[in-house]
Design a protein around this nucleic acid. Structure first.
Length: 535
RNA sequence: GGGCCCGUAGCUCAGCACGGUAGAGCGCCCGGCUCUUAACCGGGUGGUCGCGGGUUCAAAUCCCGCCGGGCCCGCCA
């Protein structure tokens, strides 16, 4: 039986030991995009699966909030460039609702984590510097700076000066952490000068000293990562491929934790990034898609599904225009999970089931939810912008989607689907799925018979005559067709051609009510060759 | 300079760890459907599995080498 990649990975880690700490971490450089949730998502899923199999495991998510700001992402005002080089915890919240930049974006991220139902322990890098978690490891790192320098040279070819220390104090004068250079220490006090030019920021020239016990400084990234593993006993860590390149930060930190801190490095799970429309997500290019944007158009389960269904090492490409397809695939997996559908290949059936299960928040419900296909919802919201529950249920019954009495949860899901579809249509839908009237139906004239043209002209007269009730109008259409010796189907066909250029469409009288009888009448007249093309 | 991923139907992709008749969805074509037709329901069309070698009775799948595309590292995190 083919196993899901997650189960294979857990097989592997359980061979080593039954007790695990799964760490994940994210830089708090601004609003997170959908790709950023992969890190804690994988961490949570791994820990949960280990527990399910009788092991012990905890998942962690660490906000890298002591890192320096190295660029100001677009929606945030230019003035913020004065904070470049300062740690996120010391920068004000651009949106002014939280105490700091770090707090604001951490909250945003935690909100996504919660919506995805991830049980994961939140830790702040800055807090860990302040509360002494890192302290013993900072001491060791400073004392064995030479050994670390040697590893950096050996693994990544980076040559650091001989007085270099892997610690970066926050400058007392300018508050920057990215521009300080520590060159000496006495006990817990580190001597530094703030004179580095790191491209995005320049040091102020100040010289000073810092006590590492204050927690006003940080370790260099690769050393910090190793210290984190040592301090928190991390045994597993998912991370993006930027860390996985040969000579990259995993290679370096792996040696540091072994040779300097005397601990075993975690088992890595590296993953390829999420692309958007075939390109990398880039804040400066403005093509990012955030979890909250996702939750506006589709449920959190579908984001989990998107990330779980392919192996982490394969890159995932997200296209908002394709969202209805993704949701359809998710709901197909749902039908498979509940045994309503089966794939020819038993392996694929079991994978679909597993993907569905992993995408759930908590336990899957005992009965299959009532489904309203996304693309169908897209049609519905365009025809009936303010559809109520009663009408919705009537439609579902008519179209065979209602196979049992809906529960309150079903109703909520159905209404959510309508809301999502409507947002999607408004913000992202390609023109091709938008239901709209033909700009110029005059070409229809040559595609239909003289009788059909006559029927359209008469129907237009009816419409212009007065307002009709739906049933009344419907009956009129049938009478009209028959009186001309025309099969009603031929009339309907012509009507849809005149309106949307297709032979079929939504129930005609309702469609007319949605569009407005006068506009419809004009279309009918033009298609019948009885009116001007100017609509 | 180094690393990872991708290349399979017109499009989007599954299948590849462990070789055994090339798959799905969309599109396209054809046919149905009317006191109902909420773009529905049938059926069909579709492929040098990027290229070249190798291993094998047998390769989309394993190995080597190319080509094309994407991303990452070699600053900082």
């Amino acid at each position: 039986m083919k196993e899901h990649w997650l189960d294979e990975f857990v097989d592997l880690v359980l061979e080593k030991t039954k007790e695990h700490v799964v760490a994940s971490g994210t830089s708090i450089s601004g609003s997170a995009h959908v790709g950023n949730v992969a890190d804690p998502l994988y961490a949570h899923a791994i820990a949960a699966e280990i527990r399910k199999r009788g092991g012990r495991a905890e998942a962690l998510w660490i906000a890298d909030d002591m890192d320096p700001l190295d660029s100001v992402p677009p929606p945030i005002p230019r003035e913020f460039s004065k904070y470049l080089g300062m740690p996120y915890v010391d920068i004000p919240d651009p949106y002014r609702c939280c105490r700091s930049w770090a707090e604001h974006f951490t909250k945003e991220f935690l909100d996504a984590i919660e919506k995805l139902g991830l049980e994961i322990k939140y830790l702040s890098g800055a807090s860990m510097y302040r509360d002494g978690t890192y302290l013993p490891w900072i001491k060791i790192a400073i004392e064995r700076a030479e050994r670390i320098r040697d590893i950096l040279l050996r693994v990544s070819g980076t040559l650091k000066p001989s007085d270099w220390l892997p610690y970066m104090p926050v400058c007392e004068n300018c508050g920057r952490v990215g521009t300080t250079y520590a060159y000496s220490f006495q006990g817990d006090r580190v001597l530094y000068r703030c004179d580095l030019d790191v491209g995005y920021a320049k040091g102020c020239g100040h010289r000073g000293e810092r006590d590492i016990k204050e927690g006003r400084g940080k370790l260099q990234w690769r050393v910090e990562w190793a210290a984190r593993w040592a301090a928190l006993n991390v045994t597993i860590e998912p991370f993006g491929k930027e860390h996985a390149a040969a000579g990259g930060s995993y290679d370096t930190s792996k040696l540091i934790v072994k040779e300097v801190f005397g601990r075993e490095p975690p088992i890595p799970l590296t993953y390829e990034h999420v692309m958007i429309g075939g390109r990398k997500m880039s804040k400066s290019r403005g093509n990012v898609f955030t979890p909250s944007q996702w939750f506006e158009v589709a449920p959190p389960q579908t984001l989990k599904f998107f990330l779980f269904r392919v192996h982490p090492m394969r890159h995932k490409d997200f296209r908002v225009e394709d969202l209805p397809n993704l949701v359809a695939e998710y709901e197909r997996a749902e039908r498979i999970y509940y045994g309503f559908e089966e794939l020819q290949d038993a392996k694929l059936t079991s994978l679909a089931r597993r993907n569905y299960e992993l995408s759930q928040i908590g336990e899957p419900s005992p009965v299959m939810p009532i489904q309203l296909p996304y693309d169908f919802a897209v049609v519905l919201v365009q025809l009936y912008p303010n559809m109520d529950v009663k009408r919705l249920l009537e439609v579902l019954r008519l179209t065979g989607h209602l196979w049992r009495e809906p529960s309150p949860e079903d109703l909520e899901r159905l209404l959510t689907r309508l809301r999502h579809a409507s947002t999607w249509v408004e913000k992202y839908a390609p023109e091709s799925v938008k239901i709209k009237l033909l700009d110029d139906p005059s070409a229809v004239r040559d595609k239909i018979s003289e009788k059909q043209r006559e029927a359209l002209a008469k129907a237009a007269e009816l419409l212009l005559e007065r307002e009709w009730g739906p049933n009344e109008l419907n009956n009129r259409f049938f009478e009209l067709s028959r009186s001309l010796g025309l099969a009603p189907s031929e009339f309907f066909e012509a009507a849809y051609l005149a309106l949307v250029g297709r032979k079929s469409g939504p129930r005609l009288v309702n469609f007319i009510a949605a569009i407005g009888r006068e506009r419809v009448a004009k279309h009918f007249l033009v298609a019948a060759g009885r009116g001007s093309a100017l609509i």
